[in-house]
Amino acid sequence: MNLIFSLIVLAILILIPLIGVGVLGLSSLFAIFIPYLAFAIFFFGLIYRIIDWARSPQPYKITTTSGQQKSLSWIKHSRLESPASSWEVYLRMFFEVFLFRSLFRNLRADFDGKRLIYGSAKWLWLGAILFHFSFLVIMIRHLRFFVNEVPSFVQKISAVDSFFQLGVPPIYITDILILAGLGFLLLRRLVDAKVNYLSYASDYFPLLLIISIALTGILMRLYVKPDLYAIKQLTYGLATFNPALPKGNLSMLFYIHLFLVSSLAAYFPFSKLVHMVGVFFSPTRNMPNDNRMSRHINPWEYPVKYVTYAEWQEKFRDVLEEAGIPIDEEWTNVAQK
């Protein structure tokens, strides 16, 4: 049901440029206006989300300590799991953001009799890493369409990525890996009972959307070739704010690819995909476990009424005296004042 809904939405998204460009001929709307709008939504939306989170304070320091705290000098302190200083926190965040350390924690190998078993969770880490890193590399590779003189690091990454010279033009390794990662993540949602049970359409949709983007990209590279020179004229124009529709023929597949990318960008700030920036805000990870060493301020902390010693002593004066527990006269006076 949720999957079908996502597929329908995706089909509509593919149909829009097909009709818009193919039938109505609104080339510049789809090549220039919509991408600009989508990326404006992406940038302003995400900055809005960031500021929105930042508007709420983090009142208490609630680090999740997954390792030994810094205490006595002779006890080995776990720097990554229970960071006590800022740079240890940066290190923890680095491992968290770039290597998905918490997911990796699921890694576990067990022996059931003689058979070695791996649970699904390790695969989750692998699938996630494959997908995210491939996505990053693919994005960097795409800089060749946006910059006139392509920087050398982009050239190097592309060269490494097409290391296996299979066919003309060579296949990118990340193209295969991203599909493998995404395919796994999607399959997992369909097959793993507990994940399937808690998946919404908004979980399937981004996966399907990114898969479609990757597939249209791969199709263009290998089979249905567009005029790259014309594409670069367009994209370079977009990046330098001199947008113009090139003379050459931008293929239909390119319009679909561009529209899906625009959809992803516009959808990003309003979906679960904001975890990309949200992870940096996570208070259980980005705070040091130094609560007893330094003070954390809560801006809305307010005084509360509690039963004071003077009130309490008055209430229990008789039993205190009878039990021989000392009465503090100094504080009796405080109460009377």
Binding site: F42, L46, I50, L143, F146, V147, A239, T240
Partner: peptide, 12 residues
């Protein structure tokens, strides 16, 4: 964030 995602713009 802006430096990274607006890289095409900065490079040009």
């Amino acid at each position: 964030f802006l430096i990274f995602f607006a890289m095409p713009f900065w490079l040009n």
